Computed example of a mutant assay.
Amino acid sequence: MNHQQKNAISPEHEYLGISKSFAYGLQHVLTMYGGIVAPPLIIGTAAGLSSAQIGMLIAAALFVGGLATLIQTIGTKYLGAKLPLVQGVSFAGVATMVAIITTGGGLPAVYGAVIAASLIGLCLAPYFSKIIRFFPPVVTGCVITIIGLSLLPVAIRWMMGGNNKAPDWGSVENISLALLTLGIVIVLNMLPQASIRRLSILLAIVAGTILAYFMGFGDFRQVSSGAWLQFPHLFAFGLPTFELSAILSMLIVTLVIMTETTADIIAV
């Protein structure tokens, strides 16, 4: 090995400069926001929470997502992939959590099931990592494709307006705005400049937001009415309860998420 090869920097540690690093990082965070905000909205609505309580649930999800991102990217001896990953909220557990809530367990049972299943998953992680050899590209490609296809109904509901009880559900304005934003992503990805293709999602979000404002969707009054800084309340929804059936259900979900995460990390 020559001196140049020895001192070569791997792609994930390459410094791209402040402007590119900020732009790519911002794109990752903004893209991640949709995936983190949607599950608490669905679960909070199923639990009958108020708007303020759902906001607290979303804030908690964002905080934990940021903390998990730091652990994954910086890493320690036993935790973290040390790869440029942004941790979000998986949609895989939404249906199970809603089922736990609607069958009488409520949010405390959901929290208890998540805590117990996560601890079991943490104990299984060293053994789970040994099955990577059973994840060739054809398997990981199929898993990631299935994940994308499974999210299509969510995307379609958002295109329709997000709330099937709203009077503008499925309106021409909602669908047109979604298609225009999708069109911007496609056009940007067809341009020869690699930097613009990498920023296509971020640029499409900005352009779509501007279009939404001029179409009458831009109402930020509720944002300005909230507190700029507020400390979280521990056990705001009650102490967690541990129900065996809920824990077993969430353990299955945890194994699915571990498989999904394994495929994502291998792809990166």
Rank of each mutant, 00 (worst) to 15 (best):
I36Q: 01
I247D: 01
M250L: 15
A99M: 07
S245R: 14
T254K: 11
V94A: 04
A60P: 01
S50Y: 02
S50Q: 03
L41P: 01
I196D: 08
L191E: 04
S19Q: 10
V89F: 00
L179M: 12
P240I: 13
Q27V: 09
K165D: 06
E14G: 08
L179K: 01
M160K: 12
R198G: 09
G112W: 08
M159Q: 11
N164C: 07
A178R: 08
L124K: 06
Y111N: 09
V114Q: 00
L41V: 12
L255F: 15
L255I: 15
S19H: 12
S118G: 14
H28Q: 11
S90T: 06
V114D: 00
F214W: 09
N189P: 11
A52M: 04
T69V: 12
A59W: 09
C142I: 13
I252A: 15
P167W: 05
A38C: 09
L119M: 11
I42L: 14
Y24P: 00
S129L: 09
L124Q: 02
G148I: 12
F214M: 09
Y78M: 01
V223I: 11
V110K: 01
K130S: 09
G104C: 02
I210V: 15
A227L: 10
I115D: 06
G162Y: 14
I156W: 13
P108H: 10
Y33V: 11
I265Q: 06
Q230I: 12
V98R: 00
N163K: 12
K82E: 08
I156N: 13
L255C: 15
C123Q: 05
A95D: 02
I101K: 03
L70S: 07
T76Q: 11
F242Q: 05
V206E: 03
A46W: 03
R133P: 00
G66H: 03
I156H: 13
F134M: 09
T96V: 13
A95H: 00
A125H: 14
K77Y: 04
A8H: 11
Q72E: 11
G65S: 15
A60R: 01
A113R: 04
P84C: 06
G161Y: 13
I196P: 14
A81F: 14
I184K: 05
R157Q: 12
G75Y: 06
N7G: 05
S51P: 00
D168R: 06
H13W: 10
V37I: 13
L122H: 07
P167Q: 08
T254H: 08
I18M: 12
F91G: 05
I43Y: 00
K20M: 02
F128E: 03
S150E: 08
G17E: 03
P40Y: 03
L248K: 06
A263Y: 02
P240T: 09
S150N: 14
L152N: 09
V253R: 11
F22S: 15
T145Q: 10
F242R: 11
I210M: 06
G80H: 04
